[in-house]
Design a protein around this nucleic acid. Structure first.
Length: 276
DNA sequence: AGGGGTACCTGCGGGC
DNA sequence: TGCCCGCAGGTACCCC
């Protein structure tokens, strides 16, 4: 589920509820043990209880929480991770994986149906392999048309695969890759290095447009409701989707039938006429 | 380098 | 109704 806009929405909603408050309790439920591996829940408790989160940042789809004792938590929500804030201790049942309790008796809860998410506790962010291999964040102000072109010049693989490659540009997932390519009128199979300057320029403009618009709409919630923000709200960008999950429906621009195909195990949606 | 496949999990919806 | 199959927003790892 969560791509950059959904992770950013969580970050914005959580920040005012958790920063600079003393942590008074922390617990991992039985089925959440792998979530925090290789660190034990005892070590997590030792580092967290009595400490405070000083800042919360996002890089790509990662959340980075800085503690006042110089330790950090690097979280990735993967397919189904999400947060809630409650005034009562969360129930043990269903998909609750862990919680952090603050001095004002609010609880930050982490829920993850599919159990792919990871919370890494590390002493020095420079040693985080997962962060070190990330490319520039898709919404970083440092992206320019020239920069994107020169990065893509180095790759013979398809532009679709490049957009999903977090080491090239970080934060874009399957939904927004499909949507950005549609708006840019680029066929997903096009070799990255074959893109013209004009195509690169359109692509960069549309990536920024799609992601920032999706943030304004609090992300995309699909039919299965697996993404819900901390207030229980749904992401309304779903209404603006042009191609994702619209196989066999009419293109909103030209009326052609939207196609779906598999590329290394993932569904790609595109309009055969607009993205010839 | 890039292509393809699998694995990690759980739940849902479609088809028979 | 009930079961089996395919599918899902992500990423790491393997072999060719």
């Amino acid at each position: 589920m969560p791509e950059l806009p959904e992770v950013e929405t969580f970050a914005r909603q959580i920040k005012p509820q958790v920063l600079n408050k003393k942590i008074v309790d922390f617990n991992v439920f039985e089925k959440g043990q792998r979530l925090i591996a290789p660190t034990s829940s005892d070590e997590f408790r030792n580092r967290l209880i009595g400490s405070r989160f000083l800042s919360l940042n996002r890089h790509g789809k990662f959340l980075i929480l800085d503690l006042d004792n110089s330790w950090q938590i690097i979280a990735h929500l993967r397919m189904s991770g999400r947060f809630t804030i409650t005034k009562a201790k969360p129930d043990k049942h269903v998909h609750n994986r862990l919680y952090v309790k603050f001095e004002d008796s609010t609880y930050l809860n982490f829920i993850d149906t599919r159990r792919f998410a990871t919370f890494h506790l590390i002493a020095d962010i420079k040693n985080s392999q997962s962060l070190n291999r990330l490319g520039l964040d898709a919404l970083s102000g440092d992206w320019t048309q020239i920069r994107l072109c020169s990065v893509l010049q180095r790759h013979s693989k398809s532009i679709y695969k490049c957009l999903l490659d977090q080491s090239i540009i970080s934060g874009i997932g399957n939904i927004y890759a499909n949507e950005a390519l549609f708006l840019s009128k680029i066929n997903p199979d096009t070799a990255a290095q074959a893109l013209s300057q004009a195509s690169c320029a359109r692509l960069l403009k549309n990536i920024i447009y799609i992601l920032s618009t999706a943030i304004n709409f609090k992300g995309t919630t699909l039919l299965d409701n697996s993404y819900i923000d901390i207030d229980g709200g749904t992401g309304e960008f779903s209404k603006l989707l042009n191609v994702y999950a619209r196989a066999n429906k009419q293109c909103k621009v030209c009326g052609a039938i939207i196609k779906r195909k598999k590329v290394s195990g993932r569904s790609v949606f595109y309009c055969p006429k607009c993205q010839h």
